[in-house]
Design a protein around this nucleic acid. Sequence first.
DNA 1: TTGAAAGCGCTAACAG
DNA 2: CTGTTAGCGCTTTCAA
Lengths: 337, 337
Amino acid sequence: MKATIYDVAKEAEVSIATVSKVINQTGRISHSTRGKVLQVMKKMNYHPSFVATALTGKRTETLGLLVPDISNPFFSEIAKTIENHAHDKGKSVIICSTNYKQEKETKYIELLQRKQIDGLIITSGFQNKDLLQQMITSKIPVIILAHNDPSLNISVVSVDDFKGGFMATSHLLSKGHSNIAIIAEEVKSSTIRILGYEKAYESKNIKPDRGNILRTTASIENGKRIILDLLSRKIPPTAVFACNDLIAIGVIQGAREKGLNIPDDLSVIGFDNTILATTTVPALTTIAQPIEDMGEKVVDVIIDEIEKGSETSKKRILFIPELIVRGTTSDLKDTKD
Amino acid sequence: MKATIYDVAKEAEVSIATVSKVINQTGRISHSTRGKVLQVMKKMNYHPSFVATALTGKRTETLGLLVPDISNPFFSEIAKTIENHAHDKGKSVIICSTNYKQEKETKYIELLQRKQIDGLIITSGFQNKDLLQQMITSKIPVIILAHNDPSLNISVVSVDDFKGGFMATSHLLSKGHSNIAIIAEEVKSSTIRILGYEKAYESKNIKPDRGNILRTTASIENGKRIILDLLSRKIPPTAVFACNDLIAIGVIQGAREKGLNIPDDLSVIGFDNTILATTTVPALTTIAQPIEDMGEKVVDVIIDEIEKGSETSKKRILFIPELIVRGTTSDLKDTKD
DNA sequence: TTGAAAGCGCTAACAG
DNA sequence: CTGTTAGCGCTTTCAA
């Protein structure tokens, strides 16, 4: 059927060991036999089986990527850059989408281990710390992306969530808003953004209202649901800091349903700067994560750890977020109607 | 390091064959030994290596998925459903994004073969027919998704592009438009949508203007570029049928740049009904593809072909598209300004 | 510079 | 019902 190393060896009239050596460029072989083998390989359209190779203990040249929801543009965009960059470096990527379910995390991680991936990239929203710990001890390189949890001894590539939260809130504060709701995800990085939010208030000497801190899972629906809730309060917020673009869009849609004008009646700022932020009208003011840079960096780091072995010192790389002011935030209007 | 079948055998005081049998539920083993082996496996946290298993000729339980651009919401949404459904069926998915490059197609297909995937799902935009032919002859099941090319002897799961093109155009026609530009992708399914476009004209006894048929690659930028072009004609179109949502959004943005109001000055209809179609204002009128159904179906079909072997008769499954009328299309205004 | 042979972890006859 | 053994395709000593 498909050519094996034996077929090539026979055709080239050498031993399989010789063929193996020219494939891997190991040992010393005469120029002529090398040429001959190469030629036969090409002629027979031979490609070594990764499976057999992996069984001998070599790497599989495969990375695992765990995301909570590949249909969230933030993750699909990051997956794209990771995939591209990894392939440039000769690795392929198995992408698994966990749907925010712990059981799926567990299942996929076991699966990926069984497939002998060389390294694993996990992203924001990962919940099962024990599992992680287990992977670490089993020596397979793991990196966390966009999930800045200092309590784990793992390399991290992330945006500076604290700074991002601070910037977003400060922007709103500087526009005169003081009643700002923050809708955060139930993940670590959002927790840190909340810290930035509080810090921003603090530096203005205002006390944030704890009731203004909401948490949910990333989706348009949840954003909408929460803003509807918020809007039914006696004193609704005049601005919302949504911890990602999906939620921000839900907020905008919900507010519009209530007849509010964005940004005149409600300022909204998002986070991530995905494609969604550019397609709304007005376009969404948001905090940009350097998605491409982060994706490339995480690949570089994990490849480095794979090659250097697990003794490499763990890195913690924080990218600086950027405030992108577009049309969904404006100065607070006089409240006297 | 990691437990192997030998470790389990020794610990359970049986042979590896016995262990193998309980793993695979083959042969007959006494209840007691089975129990013991099971228990030891659990105790040692043993999981059979996929690599070793694959080498013996069994399946890898892995599917390949080739998309041209995972950051296009259509593909990331379809990838999500495929991934979910496949995992429910016990398969994992390797997603590769080719960036619309033939060389990458080639590279990934070779790679996937080397990894001994059980089946391959390729999507719209695939270009290299020869490669496909080669895969078919090499007996590995291949299915095409959203790319309805009757010239290939492969199973197809797709939306009815002809009907979709017809519906979109008819909708515009029924609104009084007769100067409708169609911006299609350079892929087969778009070609068929163009046929539907022409058919719609024909059934109204109008002759479409060939200059109104444009082709490009899916992206917001391209949509914008083309509409800007179109708008600079002496007699610009009054409506645009964009063959996907990304292009449609580019069209909207470009038209707005020129000061046009959507839909009053220009009606726009998209295709796909991705998340993007719901986030614009006004929301995008579009032709919906049943993404979930298609994704699930394609997984079912490929698993079926994997299990039944290549003698299964090839299927051609067409889903019916649906017109979703939202805010970007309206009746043609009187042209007298 | 080349080749023989052991072994990676598992499956699948075939014996017993 | 259980165990022995021969591969699967490749890498890697170790000899020649």
